[in-house]
Amino acid sequence: MSKVLVVSDSHGLTKELEVIRERHLKEVDLMIHCGDSELILDEKAISGYLTVMGNCDFNGGYPMETTSEVAGKKFFITHGHRYSVKSTLMNLKYKAQEVNADIVCFGHSHILGAEVIDGILFLNPGSIRLPRERLEKTYVILDLLEDKIKMSVFEINGREITDLAREFAL
């Protein structure tokens, strides 16, 4: 079983990223940051996270997007601002199909959400700094099981929000 932690839109927070990393380091295989960290590449707080550039990352030196593979699942990671994710997931869906992604991780809207479209899981972990549409500052852990993906949602303080847990068959 493999686990992937996904966080986004931390907008300058450092201690919180370090706490999340230390809390889950031994249980996850990959830690993803979907952009708008507003931290430079060699900032200690962001080390260990696979990070992309967001629209507020002006001197990060991060890639605009990247891919990674865990447990046979291909992840496509982007911030989302170049795909108009605040209004539609269609552009992102076309890109995901182009790169044969199983799971798309993105941020930008600060809105926690996950849905399967045409067999691809689209995941926005919300924001650990400025969440929208919820009060909780959230991040997500995905359990990549053989026949399904379990999503667990956590508050920045580490408390699991169990009623937001979901399972997806891909």
Rank of each mutant, 00 (worst) to 15 (best):
G126F: 12
L121A: 04
D147A: 08
L145G: 13
R159L: 11
E115L: 06
T78A: 11
K86H: 10
F76H: 06
S109Y: 01
Y139P: 00
H108G: 03
E133P: 01
K150R: 12
K137E: 08
I161S: 12
E115Y: 01
G72D: 15
L130F: 13
F76C: 04
Y139K: 11
I141R: 00
H79T: 05
V153C: 13
K95G: 14
A114P: 06
L142P: 00
I141K: 01
K148F: 09
F106Y: 09
E136W: 08
L145H: 12
N91C: 11
V70M: 07
L135M: 12
A96S: 09
I128R: 14
T78K: 11
M151S: 04
D118V: 06
G107I: 05
E65A: 10
L135E: 15
A114I: 00
L121S: 09
E115W: 03
L112W: 01
L135F: 12
K74D: 14
S87I: 09
V104W: 06
G72L: 14
Q97K: 15
A101T: 03
I149D: 09
G119H: 12
S127L: 01
G107A: 07
G72V: 13
T78Q: 06
G107H: 05
L130Y: 12
I149H: 13
T67I: 04
A71I: 06
E69P: 11
S152R: 14
D102Q: 10
L142A: 07
T66D: 02
I111P: 01
T66A: 10
L92D: 06
I128V: 15
Y83T: 08
Q97P: 03
I120T: 10
K95M: 15
I156K: 15
R129Q: 15
S109V: 05
L123G: 00
A71C: 14
E155A: 15
H79R: 04
D118W: 04
N91I: 06
K93A: 15
